[in-house]
């Protein structure tokens, strides 16, 4: 899953904390960035790196919202349903997204392009209703029309829009593996 350089980087990251488990979130992120979710193989690697058992990792994954154990679509779109977006009509946006993807919230859309999730406040309250694509790209001032358009656009793109690995050290892995 990881190149030797990436593994060295992860090891260094884990070792720079007083206790190895502090590096767990970072390593789990790295796995997720590679695979799209945290798979069993990734769990094994993180066990090697941090000493945390599968259960102990799942304790973390099931607690933290941005970590996921199950596969998602090529993209994950988090639509804010907290108060500022709610007063601006986020419920209609979520309903529209459910209708458009044809699957319930949290499931992979039929074409595999996206998983839509409700989200807590994204800090985009001034551009409500808002959403966040792949934890990176803001989608702002949504309305029922624009969410449909946006989802269509995702559907048409053959490759995912994931660009997390670009140009930074925060969870520096070289980009997502093709997991089709």
């Amino acid at each position: 899953m990881f190149t030797p350089d990436e593994l060295t980087h992860l090891k260094q990251h884990v070792n720079h904390y007083p206790e190895p488990r502090a590096g767990a979130i970072y390593c789990l992120y790295a796995v997720q960035d590679k695979v799209g979710h945290i798979n069993d193989k990734g769990i094994e690697i993180v066990t090697e790196l941090t000493g945390l058992s599968k259960t102990q990792q799942e304790e973390l994954i099931s607690f933290y919202t941005l970590l996921r154990r199950r596969p998602i679509g090529r993209n994950v779109l988090r639509i804010c349903d907290s108060i500022s977006c709610h007063v601006m009509g986020s419920k209609a946006i979520l309903d529209a997204a459910i209708k458009q993807t044809g699957v319930p919230i949290g499931e992979i859309s039929k074409d595999g392009s996206v998983t839509v999730l409700p989200s807590i406040c994204l800090g985009l309250c001034n551009k409500a209703p808002a959403a966040l694509l792949n934890e990176m790209d803001e989608v702002e001032n949504l309305n029922v029309h624009s969410i449909n358009e946006y989802l269509n656009k995702l559907s048409e793109k053959p490759h995912d829009l994931n660009n997390k690995g670009s140009g930074s050290n925060i969870i520096a892995t070289s980009g997502r593996e093709n997991n089709s």
């Binding site: 599968k54 799942e58 304790e59 607690f63």
Partner: peptide
């Protein structure tokens, strides 16, 4: 199980009122 007996194959899953205690398998 974890803190006293140092086991690592049983723990707490999820959060809020979905919190539940189980094993990974």
């Amino acid at each position: 199980y974890q803190d006293y007996a140092l086991g690592d194959d049983f723990g707490v899953y999820a959060s809020g009122n979905r919190t539940t205690f189980r094993r990974s398998e």
